[in-house]
């Protein structure tokens, strides 16, 4: 039973990790604590509904539609809301992301109606036995795709020139600007990546659940994952996501479903008290 619960926790945590990764990319690049990340997940799910159910696109084309749509929306959010507020107090920008999530929720409910939608994809939905564990093919696929995305973006940041420029811009806007890096373009790219990762998470969450604006609540579980893993750490976001998924399943099994939130946020509190920079984050050292 423990093995089964751990597997489902890791699969679920992989999706949380993917959404959290998008959150960290935005935070690292633009210093914006994006409270709209949960709605980005919802947008991804509705992009999938649009592509598959409304437009009837073949699955590979639908995936392309989701990725391009999410990337464009991410760049649009940056251009319309974040860039004009550059240099403003952080509280103003946070308020903008909160307002953005409210507007997006209302917009989606107006456009698609309040009723939940079913997302049918050709992704496998059965199960099989492996080493005594019942493996859900959909969970397995979600975890595998999440890991692939995380690996791809990890390699992108580490080994490509654009990734290097993005890291440079994230480390110090001023230094990167002096060195000739187009910081604004890098930030725009970060928002596109952040939105796209959340949208891929939304595709899977929409398939596991039904597509509705309530997916936002699940998407927002990326926030504790990020704080636990380390706000500025990409591997930390992944670890945080996995921890949140595993804790949620273990608490639901051995205590009660409601205790899952208690356990997750209790860990978050402990981390903030003992190691505020997160499990894999780096302690900020300021020159006096």
């Amino acid at each position: 039973m423990l093995g089964q619960v751990l597997f489902s926790g890791l699969a679920l945590g992989s999706i949380y990790g993917l959404v959290a990764l998008g959150f960290v990319v935005i935070l690292k690049a633009t210093d914006v604590f994006n409270f709209a990340q949960g709605m980005f997940v919802v947008c991804g799910a509705y992009l999938a509904v649009t592509a598959l159910s409304l437009l009837g696109l073949p699955f590979p084309l639908a995936i392309l539609f989701i990725i391009l749509g999410a990337a464009l929306m991410g760049m649009g959010v940056h251009a319309a809301l974040i860039r004009p507020l550059s240099g403003r107090p952080i509280l103003s920008i946070i308020m903008v992301t909160i307002a953005l999530s409210i507007v997006m929720r209302a917009g989606i409910e107006i456009l698609y109606g309040p009723a939940g939608r079913t997302l049918s994809t050709p992704l496998p939905s059965g199960g099989f036995l492996f080493a005594g564990l019942r493996i859900s093919q959909l969970h397995m696929t979600a975890a595998a795709v999440s890991w692939l995305c995380m690996l791809a973006f990890g390699l992108f940041f580490r080994f490509t020139s654009v990734g290097l420029l993005m890291r440079a811009a994230a480390d110090s806007h001023e230094a990167a600007t002096i060195a000739g890096v187009k910081v604004d373009a890098m930030n725009r790219l970060a928002w596109a990546i952040g939105f796209t990762l959340a949208a891929i998470g939304g595709l899977f969450l929409g398939q596991l659940q039904i597509v509705s604006t309530e997916l936002e609540t699940i998407g927002l579980l990326a926030l504790p994952a990020v704080v636990i893993g380390g706000m500025q750490s990409i591997p930390g976001a992944i670890l945080g996501g996995l921890l949140v998924g595993v804790i949620e399943q273990l608490a639901s099994t051995y205590i009660s479903p409601k205790s899952a939130d208690v356990m997750i946020y209790a860990l978050l509190l402990v981390i903030l008290l003992v190691r505020p920079w997160g499990l894999l984050g780096q302690k900020a050292i300021n020159r006096v």
Binding site: M1, Q4, V5, S8, A11, L12, I15, H139, L205, L208, Q209, E214, T217, I218, Q249, S252, T253, S256, P257, K258, A260, D261
Partner: peptide
Amino acid sequence: ITMKVTAVDVTPQALE
């Protein structure tokens, strides 16, 4: 048997 209103995975409930 209870579950969260926002549950995504109900493995614990299925096992129970």
